[in-house]
Design a protein around this nucleic acid. Structure first.
Length: 256
DNA sequence: ATGGTAGATTGTCTA
């Protein structure tokens, strides 16, 4: 089973390239973030025509997540259990092929010391608590998405440039590490050692051309799923195409 | 300190 995560930065604008990529790569499950569309306007038809099921949870203009799968999608959860309607649409979870898949668009944080930065840290606490209460460490659990955190020095193009900056502060990394300590392995690191590759490049400053990016899109899995992982890679092709998202897909393959 | 680009939307907000 091939599982991917991709922040598409508008599913409606990117619909053709997403469908093309799915068909070209034969991906079984694609988790997308920043769909930026209300559920009533989600472009469902292109996916069903291509043989995929979709569960989505979105809002106008901002945020929005979806799980796109060749297999049946069951036991869908949208948002945290205690969220009200006003909360940003940043999490969708479901069972696919007996794997609990949690797809998240973790808050950006905007700027250190702001309410939004605090919101990001609090959100990560809630994410950890969700695994504590809902998931068994012995079951197959996969957490993926745009985490908006680079976890170690090989995840940023320049350590001096990023030290103390949003996405790479010790505070954010510690909060993210607490989530990881539930029992997750980063399958990209497991499969690729210290390799330095990125999943996001700023639209500004010619970042893509200079390969000045961050690895902030991740696939983390529970121990029984880590055992089954045979490969994990970053597919740079979509980022180099016409009118690209600022993120590119991360893919993991499992022998299940 | 500011601006550089992009998307949804149409006056700004978010990233």
């Amino acid at each position: 089973m091939k599982v991917a995560t991709w922040n598409v930065n508008s599913i409606r604008l990117r619909i053709e390239s997403v469908i093309d990529w799915l068909e070209k790569t034969g991906t079984d499950v694609l988790c997308v973030q920043e769909t930026k569309v209300e559920d009533g306007n989600f472009p469902l038809e292109p996916f069903t025509s291509a043989g995929y099921n979709v569960e989505f949870f979105g809002q106008k203009s901002y945020n929005g997540v979806a799980i796109i799968s060749k297999h049946d999608i069951t036991d869908v959860q949208k948002g945290f259990h205690d969220d009200d309607d006003e909360q940003p649409k940043r999490l969708i979870a479901a069972n696919v092929n007996r794997v609990r898949i949690v797809n998240t668009y973790i808050p950006n944080g905007t700027e250190l010391g702001t309410d939004k930065f605090t919101f990001k840290l609090d959100w990560l606490q809630r994410l950890r608590h969700m695994f504590d209460s809902d998931c068994n460490l012995n079951s197959k659990v996969l957490l993926c998405g745009d985490f908006n955190v680079a976890m170690d020095e090989n995840d940023v193009w320049s350590v001096p440039a990023w030290t103390g900056k949003l996405h790479f502060t010790l505070t954010e990394r510690a909060a993210m590490h607490y989530v990881k300590q539930w029992g997750f392995a980063d399958v990209y690191r497991q499969q690729n050692g210290d390799k330095k590759e990125f999943s996001w490049w700023n639209y500004r400053e010619g970042s893509w051309q200079k390969d000045q990016g961050l690895r902030i899109d991740h696939i983390w899995v529970s121990p029984s799923l880590a055992e089954k992982c045979s490969a994990c890679w970053i597919d740079r092709d979509p980022r180099g195409g016409d009118k690209p998202s600022d993120h590119t897909p991360v893919v993991a393959e499992f022998a299940i």
